[in-house]
Amino acid sequence: MFKIMIVEDDLKLREIILENIRKWGFEGSAVTNFTDVLNQFLKFEPHLLLMDINLPYYDGFYWCGRIRSISRVPIIFISSRDSNMDIIMAMNMGGDDYILKPFSLEVLMAKINALLRRTYSYTEIESGVLQHQGVILDLKDNHLEYNQQGVELTKNEYRIAYILMKKSGQIVSRDEIMRGLWEDESFVDDNTLTVNINRLRRKLRDIGLHDFIQTRKGQGYIIP
């Protein structure tokens, strides 16, 4: 179960968010002692943090900086402060997203779910394996496995699979993939990427993976 920690001074809003995330099946905890947010963070060990900027004693920027010094946990700022400087500061301090108050609970939950999916839907472990939805990509020998069936990938096919699995849940542009393959997309024919994508898709279909790589017209590709 994912654990979400709320650092919000507004008691009513805090309780509303807590109730909502629990309805979604998450475990929630709200900070009540704003003099010691860091120790409460360490004790609860959340998978995601909702952080207001205006807090008693020290502001959200301060606590974001403290937490970033020891953790890469995703942080979403929720604030009524709408200046570009505040948003830029939040991102520069290590925030992953910024939501302006008042906000829709549906939008908040969509952002929480998207960020959790991007952060935790795959596992890259010390043995050199990338996993997503039962698909296992061996980072040592360009081997991909699904449902006890394996396929060998070429260097380019492996690199495409790695880039898309690493960013699962996000649309990756063709230019970004080409940069990952050849470092500078200006030196390659765009059709070359299409050939590699199609060849990889055929290999994936052969082991039962249909529509694993999806096209977003005019935007790029995504592994949802």
Rank of each mutant, 00 (worst) to 15 (best):
V195M: 03
Y98I: 01
V188R: 14
I112K: 04
I87K: 15
L48R: 10
M5E: 08
K140W: 06
L116R: 03
D175R: 11
F103N: 12
G220N: 01
I222S: 00
S104W: 07
I78N: 04
M91H: 09
P56Q: 02
G169W: 06
I53T: 07
M91N: 07
I16M: 13
I87R: 15
Q131E: 13
Q219T: 01
T154A: 05
K166E: 13
Q131F: 08
L105Q: 07
Y120R: 10
V135H: 02
R174L: 05
K166R: 13
E106Y: 13
I223Q: 03
G28Y: 02
D59V: 03
I136G: 00
L48P: 07
T123K: 15
N54T: 15
E45A: 14
G25T: 00
V135Q: 01
K101D: 14
F77W: 05
W63A: 04
F187D: 09
S186F: 09
I75V: 14
I88Q: 12
S173V: 11
L193Y: 03
T35Q: 06
I88S: 10
D141A: 02
R216L: 04
G128D: 03
S71R: 09
I70A: 04
R22D: 04
V195G: 00
R72Q: 12
R68N: 08
I125H: 12
Y58E: 15
D52A: 12
K167W: 09
E19T: 12
I67M: 12
H210P: 00
N39R: 10
R68E: 06
I6D: 07
P224E: 03
K167H: 11
N84Y: 04
L115K: 15
I6K: 02
I6L: 12
S173T: 15
M51E: 10
N84S: 05
M178C: 11
K140T: 15
I4G: 02
A110T: 03
I53K: 08
G128S: 03
D97N: 13
G134T: 05
K12P: 09
I16W: 09
